[in-house]
Simulated assay, not measured.
Amino acid sequence: MKKLLIVCYSWSNGNTERIAKELRAATGADLIKLETLIPYPEDYQTTVDQGQEEVERGYQPKLKPLDVEVSGYDVIAVGTPTWWYTMAPAVLTFLSSQDWTGKTVISFMTNGEWPGHVIRDMERLCKGAQVRHPLEVRFDSSGGDHMETPEKPVQDWAEAVKQEL
């Protein structure tokens, strides 16, 4: 049986973490949440502005050390919110820092109506990996935590990921 690690970054409402926890409930996998060494401001608009500037320049913030060794897992599910049409900078740091050779990567993302090119950008960074079961989950566009995507496709996705193990 293959070992699954779920890695996510989630900031304001915890929407991405919510999907990661659903996957963990379905699979029993380990879950870690990426945290930047320097936390983002608590003020939403300040973080939005900072995030836009960071995305535009390809900034990769330093992350707090992970509690697990990623190389010990066969399948890694990576989740991110959409920040200016791509992944959050913390996820860019994580994906850029790993050797994906021989791994299976499951990419998932959350957005508030503007999915952009997140999945494609994530997959591009996972050179040497087999990328499977990408998922986009939409939440309300006001920045809230109301999931617009029906629950059934998320459950079906989690079951499909479970079959990878």
Results as ranks from 00 to 15, higher is better:
Val68Met: 05
Pro41Phe: 06
Glu53Asp: 13
Arg24Trp: 06
Phe94Cys: 04
Gln45Tyr: 14
Pro150Thr: 12
Gly28Leu: 00
Ala20Trp: 01
Leu31Thr: 05
Ile76Glu: 01
Pro65Tyr: 11
His146Ser: 14
Pro153Tyr: 10
Val137Lys: 00
Val131Phe: 08
Ile32Ser: 03
Met147Tyr: 04
Tyr73Leu: 09
Thr47Lys: 11
Val48Thr: 02
Met109Gly: 02
Arg57Val: 11
Trp83Asp: 04
Tyr9Lys: 02
Lys103Gly: 06
Thr149Phe: 03
Val105Tyr: 04
Thr46Leu: 14
Glu113Ala: 15
Val105Met: 15
Gly51His: 05
Ala129His: 05
Leu135His: 00
Pro150His: 10
Ile38Lys: 15
Thr80Met: 04
Val91Gly: 04
Gln163Thr: 04
Gln130Ile: 14
Val75Gln: 00
Met1Asp: 15
Pro153Cys: 11
Thr27Trp: 02
Gly144Pro: 05
Trp114Lys: 15
Leu95Gln: 05
Gln163Trp: 08
Gly143Glu: 07
Gln163Asp: 09
Phe94Gly: 03
Trp100Leu: 11
Ile32His: 01
Val7His: 04
Gln155Ile: 07
Glu123Arg: 04
Tyr85Trp: 14
Val137Glu: 04
Val78Thr: 03
Ala25Phe: 10
Ser96Cys: 14
Ser97Met: 14
Glu54Arg: 06
Ala20Met: 06
Tyr44Glu: 08
Met109Cys: 06
Val48Ala: 07
Arg24Asn: 07
Met109Asp: 03
Val78Gly: 00
Tyr40Thr: 04
Met147Thr: 02
Val78Gln: 01
Asn15Trp: 00
His133Glu: 06
Lys2Ser: 11
Leu4Phe: 03
Lys152Thr: 15
Lys3Ser: 12
Ala160Asn: 03
Met1Lys: 13
Tyr40Pro: 08
Thr47His: 08
Leu95Asp: 05
Pro61Asn: 09
Leu125Thr: 12
Val55Tyr: 09
Trp100Glu: 08
His146Arg: 13
Pro150Ile: 10
Leu4Trp: 01
Leu34Glu: 00
Ala158Ile: 05
Thr16Ile: 10
His133Met: 10
Pro153His: 05
Gly116Asn: 05
Pro39Phe: 10
Gly14Asn: 07
Lys2Phe: 10
Leu63Gly: 08
Ile6Cys: 06
Val118Met: 07
Glu123Cys: 09
Thr27Ala: 07
Tyr85Ala: 10
Ala158Tyr: 00
Lys33Asp: 04
Glu164Gly: 01
Leu4Gln: 01
Lys64Glu: 14
Pro89Trp: 06
Phe108Glu: 02
Glu69Trp: 13
Gln130Thr: 13
Val55Thr: 10
Leu66Gly: 01
Asp99Pro: 05
Asp99Gln: 12
Pro134Lys: 07
Trp84Asn: 10
Val7Pro: 01
Ser142Asn: 12
Tyr85Glu: 15
Gln52Leu: 13
Lys21Trp: 11
Leu5Pro: 00
Leu34Gly: 02
Pro39Tyr: 07
Ser12Asn: 14
Tyr9Glu: 02
Asn15His: 06
Ser10Gln: 04
Gly28Phe: 00
Phe139Arg: 02
Cys126Ser: 09
Val78Tyr: 03
Asp74Thr: 03
Trp114Gly: 11
Gln52Asn: 15
